[in-house]
């Protein structure tokens, strides 16, 4: 046995799995699904902004989360870890993919791939920067436009104050469009990656991914837009 293959088989099974492209894809699929679960919960919780009660429900929900540190920090740790693992795997795969075709084609036509699938990497990068800003803006409260007036208890007020700014609303809506596209390909793709594929239900999975992607994008966008238009005050 050569020394090279010796060192591969001597590596632990997990290290070996994670060093392969399929291992990294599995990490992306599983962590992506965890983050999708978080996004659904986040959306459902935040839609209470439409309760029409001046934010009583939403602020009570936020207070409940604050007073249940096991839930709040449990979620933050799991989702934060998922995000780091997702980005780590994506970076590794992107590097491999760049190396896999050192000389580009002069002409290369795409016949079947969707716009969503081709923009997973750059869409993902945009989302990563959006998430950092979003946390600084509405979780930590140190980013403009409400850096000075941020309240840790009145999150409803934070939202109303922020989304009077059309440029900020545009950024949020664009980010949610990117999220919807990312989820459309990601949700479909994770079934394929994990090997859960069957010709009978793949079209339904694709449709389901499209519907969920759209619902999430529209659901989240509806909040800043409604505030900007004055429908939620």
């Amino acid at each position: 046995m050569s020394t090279a293959s010796q060192s591969v088989s001597d590596a632990g099974p997990l290290a070996r799995f994670l060093s392969s492209t399929l291992g990294k894809k599995t990490v992306m699929a599983v962590t992506g699904f965890i983050m999708f679960g978080f996004v659904v919960g986040h959306l459902v919780g935040n839609l209470q902004v439409f309760a029409g009660d001046g934010g009583v429900k939403l602020n009570a929900y936020a207070a409940f989360l604050k007073n249940t540190p096991a839930l709040l920090w449990g979620t933050r740790i799991v989702v934060g870890f998922s995000l780091i693992a997702h980005v780590w795997a994506a970076a590794g795969l992107k590097r491999l993919s760049n190396e896999a075709r050192p000389v580009q084609y002069k002409m290369h036509k795409h016949l079947q791939s969707t716009a969503a699938s081709k923009n997973m990497f750059w869409g993902g990068i945009s989302l990563f920067f959006y998430i950092i800003y979003h946390l600084l803006h509405l979780t930590v409260g140190v980013a403009s436009p409400i850096a000075g007036s941020f309240s840790h208890t009145n999150i409803y007020g934070n939202m109303i104050a922020s989304f009077q700014n059309p440029a900020l609303v545009a950024v949020y809506v664009f980010a949610m469009f990117a999220l919807g596209m990312h989820l459309y390909h990601g949700l479909y793709s994770l079934f394929q990656t994990l090997g859960l594929s069957h010709p009978a239900y793949m079209p339904r999975i694709r449709l389901g991914a499209k519907v969920f992607g759209a619902l999430i994008a529209i659901g989240f966008s509806s909040m800043p837009v409604a505030i900007l238009l004055g429908a939620v005050k």
């Binding site: 492209t21 894809k25 190396e99 791939s113 969707t114 390909h185």
Partner: peptide, 15 residues
């Protein structure tokens, strides 16, 4: 072996 030969990963896009 496929990985060792320097081929990239699959992004499930179907080209």
């Amino acid at each position: 072996r496929m990985n060792a030969e320097g081929f990239g990963h699959c992004t499930n896009i179907g080209e």
